[in-house]
Amino acid sequence: MYKIITTSLVLLFTTIFYAQEKPTAENTGYTGTLTNYTGSTTIQTDNTVIENKLISGTIRIYANNVTIRNCKITTGGFYGIDIKEGENILIEDCEIEGMQSAAILGRNFTARRCNIWNSGADGIKPYSNFLIESCYFHHLGYVEDAHADGIQLVREGGGIITGNNFDMGPASGYKNSQCIIIQSNDAAVDDIVIDGNWINGGGYSVQIRERNYGPPTNISITNNLFGRDAQFGTHIIDGDNSVTNNVFNCNRYEDTNELVEGTTCDETLSTNNIELSNNIISYPNPITNELYVLENQGANYELYSNTGKLIMKNTITSNNFNVKTNNLTSGIYVLKIFTKEGVTTKKIIKN
């Protein structure tokens, strides 16, 4: 019997590496038969839904609650989707290719299971309030002098990058550069979670760089699997972590599962203890307000920040318990549930 918890958490059923399928061209992008899109490419009406369409040109958004789902977007313009204004933009199960600059530009969006490739330059250029999950980035930088990044963020922040595959090793005809680059070119950058991705290629695969507005702060890079195709190394992070509160934890090489050089693995932050996971918690994914939990009266739970700080703990005194999370900031947390059978560790993402 399932019970409901009202919460703003998105709960990942188990650790990404052991349960989530690695994003590829076969499990991202559109499926089924598409028909030509004949509507306006400038979206100005709230709650617009574009679904199951072949789209030629750039979609420009000036509205709230816009959904673009199961589509293929091909454009020679600068962007595939240019979010000018609006909140709660959902881009899901889309293939986006051909653009000169990036597949998606803007803020206040979720990009999920998108196949992003054949860009003149970058994959996604986000600003703030974004979730990029389970997308496939590959074959970027067809422009001759391209400096192509999978994700390029140069201001603002407040976003989550999780479960994506950055397949950016050497590719003929493409100038793959950094898989993820975050640097303060245009404004200060703060509060980014990079967790549970497959990351391969580039100069440094992940760069966190200080530019005009100081070093980026509160950048969490955890539980990622790195490939061996980076030219200079897996990562470079500017600034003093004791000041910037940046975290680099439990990142490993995909081929050997060995820890990346210069990092340790604090098991408090890890989610590899999953033996009991399937017996304790289930959920719809994604969720916004409701989380379904198996009956588990009498267990105890502890909630930790991604830096290992204990946030709260309590005893589950009924079969329908409610974890209050309204005061938590966006990011990744670790939930531990203690039962007579053992300890279950779950990764929690709060939007």
Rank of each mutant, 00 (worst) to 15 (best):
C94I: 06
C94Q: 02
I96N: 03
I96P: 00
G98T: 09
G98M: 06
M99H: 13
S101F: 08
S101Q: 13
A102F: 03
F109S: 07
T110F: 02
R112L: 11
R113E: 14
R113P: 00
C114I: 02
N115D: 14
W117C: 03
N118S: 11
S119H: 03
S119G: 15
G120M: 02
D122E: 10
D122G: 00
D122F: 01
I124P: 00
Y127R: 09
N129C: 01
F130P: 09
F130W: 05
I132Y: 12
I132C: 12
E133K: 01
E133T: 15
C135G: 07
F137L: 02
H138F: 11
H138E: 04
H138N: 12
H139R: 15
Y142K: 12
D145R: 15
D145Q: 14
H147P: 00
G150K: 00
G150D: 11
I151M: 01
Q152T: 07
Q152N: 13
L153D: 06
V154C: 06
V154K: 04
R155Y: 10
R155T: 13
E156W: 10
G158F: 01
G158S: 03
G158W: 05
I161D: 15
T162E: 13
F166I: 13
F166C: 07
F166K: 04
M168K: 03
P170R: 10
A171M: 08
A171S: 14
S172A: 15
G173R: 03
G173W: 01
K175S: 11
I182M: 09
Q183V: 12
Q183S: 11
Q183T: 15
N185H: 08
N185P: 00
D186C: 04
A188N: 08
A188F: 09
V189A: 02
V189C: 05
D191S: 13
G196W: 07
N197G: 02
N197P: 01
I199K: 01
G202R: 04
Y204V: 11
Y204A: 04
V206M: 00
V206L: 07
Q207Y: 11
Q207E: 14
Q207M: 13
R209N: 10
E210M: 10
N212F: 12
N212P: 00
G214F: 03
P215H: 08
P215T: 15
P216A: 02
T217V: 15
N218L: 03
I219K: 03
I219H: 04
S220M: 05
N223D: 14
